[in-house]
């Protein structure tokens, strides 16, 4: 069985003061995360106040490399199958995402992936991951 990846129409993401710099970076092809200025630990999803120590946080560029922590090909929630996944970035945090540009039936936990960006309405780019 093969389930080729198909592009899924993406609506514009929620953009607010907490997310706008992230989407701006994504438009430039850069995945960012936030790291605490006090305890230096990165976290996910990005927040202005550190969930470990309540310190102020700042944007950092991520390598864009990671490993699939879990993946589920969603076959019956709309017309197009898609792969929902958690990817653990090499920086140590795990983010919800989609795995794209692959036969979805071949994806596996532990697989190495790299960030890519898929266009959404409103000139946004959404970070997703493809097998390396």
């Amino acid at each position: 069985m093969t389930t080729p990846y198909q592009d899924r129409p993406l609506t514009a993401p929620i953009s607010d003061p907490a997310t706008e710099p992230y989407w701006n970076a994504a438009r430039e092809g850069v995945l960012r995360l936030r790291r605490c200025q006090a305890c230096k630990r990165p976290h996910w999803y990005p927040r202005p106040v550190c969930p470990f120590c309540a310190g102020d946080t700042e944007w950092k560029n991520a390598s864009g490399l990671g490993t699939i922590y879990s993946v589920s090909v969603t076959r019956r929630a709309g017309p197009i199958p898609y792969a929902l996944a958690y990817v653990t970035l090499d920086e140590g945090v795990t983010m919800l995402t989609n795995i794209v540009d692959a036969d979805l039936d071949t994806l596996y936990i532990g697989q190495r992936v790299k960030v890519c960006f898929k266009p959404a309405e409103g000139d946004y780019s959404i970070p997703m991951f493809a097998p390396v």
């Binding site: 997310t19 999803y45 927040r47 993946v71 589920s72 929630a77 929902l84 989609n98 959404a120």
Partner: peptide, 22 residues
Amino acid sequence: PDAPWEMPYGPVTVNMYALAAA
């Protein structure tokens, strides 16, 4: 607060349990 970071990826109810099962 989590919505902007997750909604683009199509989380519904069943696949958010399927990830744990997998």
